[in-house]
Computed example of a mutant assay.
Amino acid sequence: MDVARDFDNRFKTAVEKNFDQSADAYDRFEERHHLFETLTRRQLELIEPSSPERILDVGCGTGISTLALHQAMAGRSPNIYAIDISERMLLRARERCKALKGVYFFRGDAENLSSCFNESFDAIFYTASIFLLPGFAESLRQASHLLVPGGVLSISYYAGLFDENGDDAIRKAFPEQKYQYGAVPIGELVSCLESLPETRTTRVDFRFEVSRDFLFDFLSIPAQSAGLFPKFPYLERIPKVREFCDLLVKRVDPVFMGWEFLITRTRGFLSSCLNLT
């Protein structure tokens, strides 16, 4: 096994473990701040005028994105298929969406979608998940083959924390701090999307000011705190995260969270738009 593959496997194992520990924390965070619902609804808005009937939700977590998709499409009766690698996350997702018709959950690897699905989809969503996939390029390649002609990929990407000038807030406040936002640099992600045949990708920035409490709630999620303090057990990370947030908002004020939406449309959609004009 080469070094890169070994790193990817260890990273995926760590991600699965952290997310198994994160189900309760994600739900508590979402109840207070509604971030992932907001991201999902915005992604759905950005794919208009597409009106998908069959959707794949990749990295669905505790089902927040899946529920948001279903609610936002009330009256359209879509079929939504959702996949995640964490069984504990999926238990919560199934409970959250148990009353919904046309919603199906599967445990599986987002980097091996073709082994999980033989059918095609009108839209595939990666809501706050793509940056946690070392093998994101293979996942996107397989996802593109699962799209019908005219289908669309919709991605929300965590770009980081920034000051009012757009500079990295963590690097500014803690020059010595090593913090990796995820496994996927934005440049590599964009290049990968642009390399998909017969597609066109657009990017939309989304930044908003965040409070100290928001930062603490977000960064204390096990899967997030591991990025800040990977060598410490979870319970030992919490006081470190608290101190980190206190110092961050003192050294950088205001602090903004940044996300990027990437919408990749296939040739069939582009052709239909040209015909309409």
Rank of each mutant, 00 (worst) to 15 (best):
Val3Cys: 01
Leu67Arg: 15
Asp168Phe: 05
Glu119Gly: 03
Ala68Ile: 03
Arg92Pro: 00
Glu188Cys: 08
Arg141Trp: 08
Ala82Pro: 05
Phe229Ser: 01
Pro230Gln: 10
Arg10Val: 01
Cys97Arg: 04
Thr40Glu: 06
Ile55Ala: 08
Phe256Gln: 06
His70Trp: 14
Asn9Glu: 15
Ala68Leu: 05
Leu153Ala: 06
Lys98Ile: 00
Ala169Val: 09
Leu189Pro: 02
Ser65Arg: 03
Ser211Trp: 01
Lys250Val: 00
Pro254Ile: 04
Cys97Leu: 00
Phe117Lys: 09
Ala223Pro: 03
Val103Gly: 11
Ile238Arg: 08
Tyr26Gly: 03
Ser65Lys: 02
Leu274Ser: 10
Leu67Phe: 09
Leu113Ser: 09
Glu164Asp: 14
Val15Trp: 01
Ala110Gln: 03
Thr277Cys: 09
Cys60Met: 07
Val152Met: 03
Val15Asp: 10
Ala68Cys: 04
Leu132Ile: 04
Phe136His: 13
Pro149Lys: 10
Val249Pro: 09
Ile170Val: 15
Tyr234Gln: 13
Pro197Gln: 03
Phe106Gln: 12
Glu138Met: 07
Ala14Thr: 11
Val255Pro: 10
Ser51Val: 07
Asp84Arg: 09
His34Trp: 02
Ala68Asn: 07
Val241Asp: 12
Val58Asp: 05
Leu276Ser: 13
Asp2Thr: 11
Arg141Glu: 10
Ala137Lys: 10
Pro149Ser: 14
Phe229Leu: 00
Met1Gly: 15
Ala72Phe: 13
Pro222Val: 02
Arg41Phe: 01
Phe256Ile: 02
Leu44Trp: 11
Ile83Ala: 11
Pro254Trp: 06
Arg32Glu: 04
Ile80Lys: 05
Glu164Trp: 01
Asn9Asp: 14
Ala123Arg: 06
His145Glu: 15
Asp122Ser: 04
His145Thr: 15
Glu37Ala: 11
Met1Ser: 14
Tyr157Leu: 08
Tyr181Thr: 12
Gly268Trp: 06
Val252Gln: 05
Val3Ser: 12
Pro49Val: 12
Lys231Phe: 09
Phe36Ser: 08
Ile263Arg: 09
Phe229Ile: 00
Phe7Gln: 13
His70Arg: 14
Val210Leu: 09
Ser22Phe: 06
Leu193Gln: 05
Pro175Val: 06
Leu276Ile: 10
Ile263Ala: 05
Ala72Gly: 09
Arg94Leu: 07
Leu147Val: 05
Tyr126Glu: 00
Gln224Cys: 10
Glu31Gln: 14
Gln21Ile: 00
Cys273Ala: 14
Thr40Cys: 13
Leu274Val: 12
Leu153Glu: 08
Val103Lys: 12
Asp217Cys: 07
Gly102Gln: 08
Asn9Gln: 13
Ser225Cys: 06
Pro197Gly: 06
Arg267His: 08
Asn118Arg: 12
Cys60Trp: 02
Asp57Tyr: 00
Leu276Met: 11
Asp246Arg: 12
Glu45Ala: 14
Tyr179Met: 11
Cys245Lys: 05
Asp8Phe: 09
Arg96Met: 06
Arg265Tyr: 07
Ser195Pro: 01
Phe244Thr: 04
Asn112Ser: 11
Leu274His: 07
Leu247Gly: 02
Leu132Gln: 10
Ser86Arg: 09
Glu45Thr: 14
Trp259Phe: 15
